[in-house]
Design a protein around this nucleic acid. Structure first.
Length: 565
RNA sequence: CGGGGCGUAGCGCAGUUUGGUUAGCGCGCCUGGUUCGGGACCAGGAGGUCGGUGGUUCGAAUCCACUCGCCCCGACCA
């Protein structure tokens, strides 16, 4: 491809709205352009990168015996209603009506549609196992799109689904995907860590996420440097890190604490550490039961963990509700004599003695309280892990880091096959629900995460495998070296390199800047001076190395150097 | 949904506080010429319903109301 004939609209300046590195560079490099909030156009370079990522994905999926299909994006509402996700997705799903006033949805994922296909055709244990996948556009009406292409409302996703007759079979399909995913991310130039995750709206038992560590990520993951334990903070478990100094309160008594509400204020006022305060939070379950949740003052409740105990639709009670129920404002409520349906406690308060709780009366707290003073129904782990907590596996110290989720795999089990009645007949003639898994990769996320991780102040540094072009020929003075450059271009093309030839009538500096911004891994500089003696210059984007190479050795040199890129 | 910020030429911005002739600057674009190893130079040129609607005023990019769009933070942690 000659650059002079290409559509590569690079820009010198950052777009006004772009704050994330990947957003800035992908727009400035002419890869993508914004159409609306969370909706992007892919320009030729962006499209090329996406296709290269897809090629890697297809190769690795095919390698585990998966077969590619393409399901509709425009779907009828019925299936979603059958599995309950018409409601549970709620506003996250783009819903529309056709001219007959029938409900339709733009699919945010495809468990339902894929299960229907399986139901239709997988009737016998002899038909199993199967793995089907597609690479397709998904639509999710995100409450807040973010970071350019990192969180969008229309995006390309590789999703696959496994269908097995046995639980062992599911384990195998899951393992195959896990391996394939590790290969895919590695080949696409990403270091991922696999973390235990919450399965959320997908349902099912086990799930793991593939995470790329990056400050721009919106997920928080817990990581143990000693043993490698990793989990999304939504599900991570740990031992409390900091022990509490013995309490100075020797007996239980009510203390006047005027206008002292938050844990920090109470701790300050009483002259104790926040860990000695037991926070009381009132939650209301889906069926309207009041649950008082107790947790050590220096910790936060993890609502995703709580949701795993009580179901997704649990919510924190409003201030008015609390005031009405307790006759005390939030900030002064506590577990002693509380009239609620259940009191549960996080394990963090198990070893506390003579601690402080709200007095269930405005401007009062109770000090010197012990566990036997409270009617706790059960202890559960509902605490969000903090930096410095202790690893349950090895006793090492845990740290929290931000990460971008690029893949997620689920053992779904029979949730969808049961609700959509996808049964097969086993060896003994018995009808059984197909056992399923579902597995997703965000194609655009791979692209964006790559830029977040691989860049410098000059621009993007693409890994060789997914670069928009592998080699860029920078011609310093197009009028003087046309024939020689064309010969080099043809040779590289002939040897199978994906190469672009920057033949534009621009100053050398401008071409270098563009090359660095767009991020070609290998640049070949052809100048009148050097070509006379039969040499060209090679520039390696990743290392910044520059060195002269004889024309005849160019191909072999690039071949040897690309292995490192 | 709550909070904050922004919308002026293709892109990035100034001008808005304190209303006043033809709305500026840089980059990009077009024409001609000179250049050609780090975003070249000279000369000439094109390009704007100042997000939209309504209002105040002799007069609105500027003031008021409504509205559309975009970005960032947060979404009840007592």
């Amino acid at each position: 491809m000659r650059w002079s004939n290409s559509f590569i609209p690079t820009r010198k300046e950052n777009p006004r709205e772009a704050e994330f590195v990947s957003h800035r560079y992908l727009v400035r490099g002419g890869f993508v352009e914004q159409h609306a909030s969370g909706v992007y156009t892919f320009l030729p370079l962006g499209r090329k990168v996406m296709l290269k990522i897809e090629k890697i994905i297809r190769e690795e999926m095919n390698r585990i015996g998966a077969q590619e299909v393409l399901l509709p994006a425009l779907t009828s509402a019925d299936v979603w209603k059958q599995t309950g996700r018409w409601e549970s997705f709620g506003n996250d799903m783009f819903k529309l009506k056709d001219r007959w006033d029938r409900d339709l949805a733009l699919a945010p994922t495809h468990e339902e549609i894929m299960t229907l296909l399986a139901k239709e055709h997988l009737k016998s244990y002899r038909d199993l196992p199967q793995i089907w996948y597609q690479i397709q556009t998904k639509f999710r009406d995100e409450p807040r799109p973010r970071g350019g292409i990192l969180r969008v409302r229309e995006f390309s996703m590789k999703d696959s689904y496994s269908f097995d007759a046995t639980w062992e079979g599911l384990d195998e399909s899951y393992e195959k995907h896990r391996e394939a995913y590790l290969n895919i991310f590695k080949r696409a130039g990403l270091n991922v860590i696999v973390v235990k995750a919450s399965s959320g709206l997908m349902g099912g038992s086990d799930s793991e996420e593939f995470m790329v560590l990056s400050g721009s990520g919106e997920d928080r993951i817990v990581h143990c440097k000693k043993c490698g334990y990793s989990a999304n903070v939504e599900v991570a478990a740990a031992r409390v890190g900091k022990e509490v100094v013995p309490s100075k309160f020797q007996r239980k008594e009510k203390v006047h604490t005027p206008s002292v509400r938050t844990v920090e204020e109470v701790a300050d006022f009483l002259g104790v550490e926040p860990a000695l305060i037991v926070k009381s939070l009132l939650y209301v379950t889906e069926d309207g039961r009041d649950v008082l949740v107790l947790i050590r003052g220096d910790y936060d409740v993890s609502e995703s963990k709580l949701a795993n105990v009580y179901g997704a639709n649990l919510h924190l009670a409003t201030g008015e509700y609390i005031t009405k129920k307790f006759n005390a404002e939030p900030g002064f409520i506590g577990p002693i004599d509380a009239e609620v349906d259940e009191i549960i406690a996080d394990e963090s308060i198990k070893n506390l003695n003579n601690f402080v709780v709200g007095g269930n009366r405005n401007d009062y707290h109770i000090v010197g309280v012990n566990l036997e003073d409270i009617k706790i129904t059960r202890f559960v782990d509902i605490r969000e892990v903090k930096d410095g907590d202790i690893c349950l596996e090895c006793g090492g110290e845990l740290s929290l880091e931000n990460a971008i989720e690029v893949g997620h795999i689920f053992k779904l089990g029979t949730k969808y096959s049961v609700s959509l009645e996808a049964y097969f007949t086993d060896k003994n003639g018995e009808k059984k629900p197909i056992i399923m898994g579902s597995y997703g990769i965000g194609v655009g996320r791979i692209m964006a995460a790559n830029v977040e991780v691989n860049h410098d102040e000059k621009g993007i540094i693409w890994p060789y495998s997914i670069a928009p072009f592998e080699v860029n020929i920078i011609e310093i003075d197009p009028k003087k070296t046309q024939e020689e450059t064309q010969a080099i271009y043809k040779e590289l093309k002939g040897k199978g390199f994906d190469v672009i030839w920057d033949d534009r009538e621009l100053s050398a500096g401008a071409k270098f800047k563009d090359a660095e911004l767009v991020g070609f891994p290998v640049n070949v500089v052809v100048s009148p001076k050097k070509i006379g003696s039969g040499t060209v210059e090679l520039q390696i984007r990743k290392t910044g190395e520059k060195f002269d190479v004889k024309k005849e050795e160019l191909v072999s040199k690039i071949r040897s150097v690309r292995k490192e890129l």
